[in-house]
Amino acid sequence: MPNSYFQFKQFRVEQDRCAMKVCTDSCVFGAYVEVQEAQRILDIGTGTGLLSLMVTQRSHASIDAVEINAEAQLQAQENFAASPWAKQLHLHPMSLQEFARCERPKYDVILSNPPFFLSSLKSPDAARNTAKHTGELLFEDILQFAQSHLKDQGKLCLLLPPPEAAHFAKLAKASDLYLSETLQVFTYHGGKCIRHIQTYTFTPMAMPVIKEFYIREEDKVTYTSAFTELLKSYYLIF
């Protein structure tokens, strides 16, 4: 049974009310995305608030976090309030569609670990379904919002499994958002690619940058030096 919380060096993520718990690939995403120069950041589908908290640790930006699930809203708000950056973090308890109806300043970075399983069998757990399956939040909704609310030089960053990442890239191109970089995340050296961290901009790229990132060594136990370096300011074990 997952712990009711995940303790980081500078903050704690309580997660007993959320269907989707803190996971390694989300932590890689939160630590990897470039936010140091950003002034305004949006986290779509914040859940526990993990990504917002991780990027706030290394940014002075004002961060808006949108969440539709009532239990997750409460959890994220508690996690934000208990963190050292409560004044930077702003929870919006609503759907992205509702959020978009209000006048909003444009964002330097929009990030999301969205519902992603387009065709897999659904869980009997309704909250988990909302968190993992495209239903309440569609890829098209994210793209439509980014078209209107991302700055000209801004970045849209997503964490998706490879098949869904390829599907999103096709949709994005049709919406004049272009893939500039993909970080392929592997479980271990010799293992399978489990996630793509994608960065989109309004500038067409003839050849998007493709990088590889390995969580563990071939022994499937030892963390790689790249993983240790990326997460050392977050994980207590480093």
Rank of each mutant, 00 (worst) to 15 (best):
S148A: 15
T130C: 11
K151W: 05
L137Y: 05
L159M: 11
Q153N: 15
L143F: 00
T182I: 12
I142H: 01
Q144I: 11
E181H: 08
P163H: 06
H167T: 11
A146Y: 14
P162D: 08
C157T: 05
H149C: 15
L177P: 06
P161M: 09
L171I: 03
P161A: 04
D152S: 15
L137W: 07
G154T: 15
K132N: 06
A172E: 00
C157F: 03
Q144K: 12
G154V: 12
D152L: 14
L177G: 02
F145A: 12
L179T: 00
T182M: 01
E181K: 14
A169C: 07
G154Q: 11
E140Y: 08
H167A: 14
L138N: 13
Q153H: 15
Q147S: 11
Q144L: 14
L160Q: 03
L137I: 08
L179R: 04
E136T: 13
G135L: 12
S175P: 06
G135S: 12
P163I: 04
K155L: 14
E164Y: 04
S180P: 00
L137T: 11
S175I: 02
E181A: 06
K132P: 04
Q144C: 08
L183Q: 03
K170Y: 09
L183D: 03
L159R: 01
E136L: 09
T134F: 02
A131E: 08
Q144A: 15
H133I: 07
L158Q: 02
F139V: 04
H167R: 14
L143K: 07
D141G: 06
H133E: 01
F168I: 03
F139C: 08
L158S: 01
L160K: 07
A169K: 05
A169R: 03
L159V: 07
L179E: 02
E136N: 14
F139T: 01
Q144H: 13
D141P: 03
S175D: 08
L150H: 12
A146C: 14
F139N: 07
V185E: 04
V185N: 06
P163G: 01
D176W: 09
E140R: 05
E164N: 05
K155D: 11
K151A: 10
S180Y: 05
V185P: 13
A166K: 13
Q184N: 08
H167G: 04
L177T: 04
A165Y: 01
T130G: 04
H133P: 09
Q153I: 06
D176H: 11
E136F: 10
P163E: 07
L160C: 05
L171R: 03
I142W: 02
A165K: 00
K151E: 09
Q153M: 10
C157K: 08
L158C: 00
S175C: 14
E164Q: 13
L158H: 01
D141T: 08
A174C: 02
A146K: 08
L171S: 00
F145P: 10
Q184F: 06
A169G: 00
H167K: 12
F139G: 10
Y178A: 04
D176L: 10
L179P: 05
Y178G: 01
S180N: 05
D152E: 15
G135P: 02
A131S: 06
K173W: 07
A174M: 09
L150Q: 12
G135N: 07
Y178W: 03
A165E: 00
F168V: 03
